[in-house]
Amino acid sequence: MNYITEGFFQAIGLILSMDEETWQAVGVTVRLTVMSMAATLSVGLPLGFLLGYFDFPGKRGAHMVVDTLLALPTVVVGLVVYAFISNRGPLGDLRLLFTIRGMAIGQTILALPIVIALTANAVECLDGRLRMTLATLGAGGWRMAATSLRECRFALMAAAVTAYGRVVAEVGVSMMLGGNIKWHTRTITTAITLETGKGDFALGIALGILLLAISFALNAGLSFLKRRADA
């Protein structure tokens, strides 16, 4: 048990001493997450809205596909994207393998079904009287769509937080597409995997604490926004 307690205290020391290797992994994680989430939300929210708001032939089929993709294993995404962006792949010329952008593509594919499914669900669960009320107040087309989206803003925040959780915690895609290259594509999760394998619990625990702290800060920010929106 001693090594765990010692590891914990060493971890606090590492964080407080601003250990460069630790903070480098944090920096990569934040950059990667921002890129993945920006891409996921800008594509996922409109697609989820279209899927939930409109009735079209094949809607049920589309729902089933999206719901199935919720269970997409990270290593499968890693494998497929690897095949496309490796030098031999069709997108090999873009030189994306072992770059943060390459990793962001994999993470976006991983998180998109979550945002699409939860957004569609939130829009479908909107009160049936909403559309009628907006129409009778004179709203039409885009205005009605925008107001409907705003009405389910809290559910959309929950979708974003869930997608963030998937992105920030995954190892498979980051490992396969980033290669866990020190100072370059090493993220918090890939670093923890490596350090644990090496038996360096202190760095692993330090990185774990920082990962949770980032998530906590994000959720605290969202909770503050929600309270302001409620008031």
Partner: peptide
């Protein structure tokens, strides 16, 4: 023209 529904929304 505007309609007030029975259940307020």
């Amino acid at each position: 023209v505007t309609l007030l529904l029975q259940d307020p929304f």
